[in-house]
Amino acid sequence: MFFLVEFSVLNPSFGLIFWTSLIFILVWVFLSRFFKNIAEALENRENFIDGSLTKAKKAEAALAGLESEKEAMLKEAEQKGLEIIREAEAIKKTKIAQGEARGKEREKNILEAAELDKANRMKEMELNIQNQIGQSSLEIAKKLLQRELEGNHEDFVKAQIAELQDQELVA
C-alpha cells in the first residue's frame, strides 16, 4: 500500500488548514447576517400567519354574531311594527267610539234644546192666545158694558170707584 503514504488527503498541508480556516471564518462572518435575517423573517412571517389566522377566525365569529344580531333586530322590529299597528287599531276603535258617543250626546242636546224651544214657544203662543182671548173678552166685556150702561155710566163709574176705595180701605 505504498500510495497511502503519499495519500495527501490524509496529510493536509498547513496552507490548506490556514486557508480553510480563513474561508470558513469568512463564510461565518458574511453569512451570519443573512441567516439571522432569514431566521427573523421566517419567525415574523410565522407570527404574521398565526396572527392573521386568529384575526380571520375572530372576524368570522364576529360576522356570525352580527348576522344573528341583525336577524334578532329584524325580528324585534317586525314585532314592534305589529305592536304599533295593533295599538293604532285600538286607538282608532276607541276614538271612533268616543266620537260616536260625543255625537250622540250632541244630538241629544240639540234635541233637548229644540224641545225646550218648542215648549217655550208653545207657552208663548198659549200666553199670546190667552192674552188675545183676554183682550178679546175685555173688548167684548167693554162692548157689553157700553151697551148696558148707555146713559148712566156716570153712576156706574162712581159706584165702581167707591167699591175700589172700599177695597183699599179694607186692605
Binding site: 495527501s8 490524509l10 496529510n11 493536509p12 498541508s13 498547513f14 496552507g15 490548506l16 490556514f18 486557508w19 480553510t20 474561508i23
Partner: peptide, 22 residues
C-alpha cells in the same frame, strides 16, 4: 521536499498556495 504538513512536520517550508481545494 513536500511542504510542512501534519505527517511531515520537519519540512522546512510552508505552502500557502491557492490549491485546487482552496
Amino acid at each position: 521536499e513536500p511542504s510542512k504538513a501534519l505527517q511531515s512536520m520537519s519540512a522546512s517550508w510552508y505552502d500557502f498556495s491557492i490549491t485546487k481545494n482552496i
